[in-house]
Design a protein around this nucleic acid. Sequence first.
DNA 1: TCGATCCCGTGAAACGATTCATGGGTTAGG
DNA 2: CCTAACCCATGAATCGTTTCACGGGATCGA
Lengths: 334, 334
Amino acid sequence: MEVGLREVAALAGVSVGTVSNVVNGRATVAQEYVDRVNDAVMQLGFVRNDAARALRSGTSRTVGMIIPDGNNPFYTSVALGASDAATLNNNIVLVGTSHDEAEREARYVEAFGEQRARGLIIASAGNIHDRLHQFARGGMPSILLDPDVDERFSSVGPDDVLGGRIGVQHLIDTGRRRIGFVGGPMRLRVLTDRLVGANDAISGTNGAVTLEVFETPDRTVLTGRTIGERVLKRPPETRPDALFAMTDLLAIGILQALDAHRVAVPGDISIIGYDDIDFASTTSVPLTSIRQPMEIIGRKAVEMIEAQREGGSKKREHITIEPTLVPRDSTLRP
Amino acid sequence: MEVGLREVAALAGVSVGTVSNVVNGRATVAQEYVDRVNDAVMQLGFVRNDAARALRSGTSRTVGMIIPDGNNPFYTSVALGASDAATLNNNIVLVGTSHDEAEREARYVEAFGEQRARGLIIASAGNIHDRLHQFARGGMPSILLDPDVDERFSSVGPDDVLGGRIGVQHLIDTGRRRIGFVGGPMRLRVLTDRLVGANDAISGTNGAVTLEVFETPDRTVLTGRTIGERVLKRPPETRPDALFAMTDLLAIGILQALDAHRVAVPGDISIIGYDDIDFASTTSVPLTSIRQPMEIIGRKAVEMIEAQREGGSKKREHITIEPTLVPRDSTLRP
DNA sequence: TCGATCCCGTGAAACGATTCATGGGTTAGG
DNA sequence: CCTAACCCATGAATCGTTTCACGGGATCGA
């Protein structure tokens, strides 16, 4: 038999209203009653029924998050930031991982919708935006982590143009003149943005520095190694003297290839990665990287959810957060 | 204004009971009514209120999972397996990440308890077991991923004794005679278990093979490198001819050290890691590793939850799943 | 002593879906 | 044509909490 407010009230000799007030920490209850109720709660092992609470009060305490890949530190760190922000309002963040399956993603979307979550933070490939928009009209806003996917929603994401500029500028500042930009496929918006930023930095040098694009089919360690090998096939004087890899994985692969051929890093070629994953600091030569402001993105996303709940769905906005350079030996030790 | 069963029923010209039956796919409704109701559902954008459903029916559709570290592929893969199993019963898995903070963990525990989740899958360090046990008496079972932490709960986990034996046996089979066991701190149960397994394998050789333990304070790449350096300080004839690292991270660090000193792998020293993380296949010499049966653990955990909900909390069990060897160049190429 | 004010506990209504006893309508058998 | 049997839509009761109008009792000033 379920222990409810009623049972607690009976044991404590008070009314259910009073028990509710005590359980929710409302200030209007005399100390004597508070104690009596708390004793009864303990004694009966009362656990508040969230379904009833949500039903009556019409509000949920959970912020939903749906991500494609649970192993991607980008998403998990965004989740951490979101969790921090949610905690301030006594809410929690619950994460569903779609593993890039549209069906699984749709199930999570429906589930959060039915739960009347406070809002959704979504990085999605699937075709769920119409449904999300329907939810939004019902008062559950969604915040996208991929910008520009759908104008109807707010979004928060890293400033990729700036990231590209920061990386190349750092290479220029450390004396590099022939820079390689390694990444692909170039249909990805993040990559074209970073390339724009990279060219911004180049164009400030009046032709003193060149940029060459090495397009890749993916951004894995193996592909990085292939790129490294390809670069090393060239005579040293026509090689780039710096490579800007669009993921740390690519950079690690490149580094492996250079290591294997005893090419000095950063002496002969310097390397920058992107993402600043944990591994970046533990490679044979610690890797300079661009750190994405993941926690801040998560925090911001939760704030936007709460703002939209307050101010109606009017305030749609697209926010970018600035990435930062994390300099390490792969570009610094001469 | 909220669109409820009532509004749908009014528009479709039927009763709420009928709408409920249609929405839940019950077979007792005539086709004509089904169509009318579905039209109305579409038209009004009806989304079922899970709070009301859960309140009345007394059952939830979510399996809760609480993990300490969102970036650990062990947990995320367990979550994937759990999600697969949950889907079979039309349930979903929602994950909360405690980031090793007791307070955050406790918040998730309370939240899932209040939600009357179907059950909890937990890898915990915190002091929450009494609370979990209280929930269990209320009908919400918990399954631990760390065995032996608390006898009151069922658990599923990898068979670490077997993992240790498999790894060492493979080294013996590939002709190694002086094996180093690298890991720590040795107060961790997983490690002592694996050491037991390792010694099992050794003891089958009648002293032909020796095992030396290199205890480490943690299991990071940096520590691995340190161990590698330490081994290389010895004269070659007293070095181990194989190292069994308790994580792939340790193994990668060791590999970096050996690479840097041009020691051949596996020619001079062969290496096995543990966990088979994505990186294991992409190191300079692809790393042989022990693969933990993570998806299966997740699947099993969900099955145990459902079993306990059926059969009362009587059936407490402790299950281990067999890990497998993933052979790669770091032990094979001579 | 009386009335005005506050304080604070009370208890019933309400949230929206599920469930099930009820009975209207139809079919089949005689 | 009548009854039994069956099918299936109905709608009211119900889940446990929150919320709020209500009023009993205490305090205070006059």
